[in-house]
Nucleic acid binder design. Structure first.
Lengths: 212, 212
DNA sequence: ATGGGCATGTAAGTAGTTACATGATTTA
DNA sequence: TAAATCATGTAACTACTTACATGCCCAT
């Protein structure tokens, strides 16, 4: 019943009253690593939330501006919504799509693609370091939770960087990518066997037939 | 001009002719880790691609079934599309949203949330190990690229597991999450200064004002 | 006085999901 | 012969983006 956008807006307002503009700024600055909302979503959402009594507008401070705050109903609707299973987003990773079909692209283009991904992750890591420093310098009750999300971003960014480095090395050497799992005690038989290349056309489906 | 779905469908057909049903199965089974399409997208996309001459239908093998293949125009449209910058998906991570607003949730619920995320990542890692084994057992020219995407999934899954373990430990101990970056030689000035906790309400915006 | 940031909102279009309706073929 | 899988499609809806139109306030 409560859309994802409405949940995010309620959540943003749970930190304190704000205008629609400030809600979007807060989401961009604090949740930007893992959440996105545009004005085109936020204003209609605020209107709906107001119509259902989950938020209220304060007396206007300046003309053409209104500040919203959560009502008690809004706060409890938020808590209920957060208790529900998080909706999982359908993946759409354009970089990996291109890597998967890498044989259709120029070698140099692939390298540029992976390098770009590495750079973005690297920049993100720097942003996160700044956010972490800020959070540590100015602690609040909720800082522990914020640090957890910052840490998630850091882990993800470092994973991307490690993957990119590994992949760039493989692309440079023309080799396949080896299993980089933390090794404990494995000796993997490197036997090849007959290549067995049949021209696949109809009836794929190999690994899984269940799921979803 | 060519939508994301159309690109994915063309790409799927670049591996060989297939029915709409098989296109979806192929995307699910081979790209499922980083791409998703539903029937409601695929059939209209195929119709559009056919109308623009990028794919053609083969003679029907069975009634009520048609197999599509790429035309030359389709293949070159695909290559062109892949050359373009990948469209970046707006993030929407329901788990991190809940962690960020963790103070609104029960401690147990948060733990369950993070544990679930860990389990999903763990299951994904197992799936990927299977896919890797399959790819290594039955090598093709494009296997090197497939392994790169598998590796990306593995890095991401391991990052999620590491984050979850760290976070679960922090939740158990009531501590904050420490910076887990691979330490090289850093002594970070731990100076605090005055906490300076002003009651934030209007005018947030701290870290960035640019970007997007 | 002008440019940037604050502020609100809508309209048009695209993208995507979900559920349904239908039926053939294969396998247990 | 029943269930699963293969196969196609549409209709209704929800979500989301983008671009636009408008105007205030503040600093240079």
């Amino acid at each position: 019943m409560t859309s994802q956008t409405e949940i995010a807006v309620l959540a943003a307002l749970s930190l304190g009253p704000a205008t629609g503009y400030a809600v979007r700024a807060g989401i961009r600055d604090h949740l930007g690593m893992f959440w996105h909302e545009s004005f085109g979503q936020i204003y209609p959402a605020l209107a709906r939330l107001r119509a259902t009594g989950l938020v209220e507008a304060d007396a206007a401070e300046r003309p053409g501006s209104q500040t919203f705050h959560l009502t008690d109903a809004g706060r409890s609707a938020l808590v209920d919504a957060l208790r529900d299973e998080p909706a999982t987003q359908r993946p759409r990773n354009g970089v990996l799509l291109r890597v998967f079909f890498g044989s259709l692209l120029d070698h140099d283009q692939l390298i540029a693609l992976v390098s770009d991904a590495r750079e973005r992750a690297s920049a993100q890591l720097a942003d996160l370091a700044r956010a972490r420093a800020e959070s540590v310098a100015d602690p609040r009750p909720e800082s522990a939770y914020w640090l957890m999300t910052i840490s998630a971003g850091e882990h993800a960014a470092r994973a991307t960087i490690a993957w990119a480095d590994e992949t760039l090395a493989a692309l440079a050497s023309g080799d396949a990518v080896a299993d980089s799992a933390p090794r404990v005690a494995t000796d993997r038989a490197q036997s090849s066997g007959a290549p067995d290349s049949k021209p696949r056309s109809q009836s794929r489906a190999s690994t899984k037939t269940s799921s979803e």
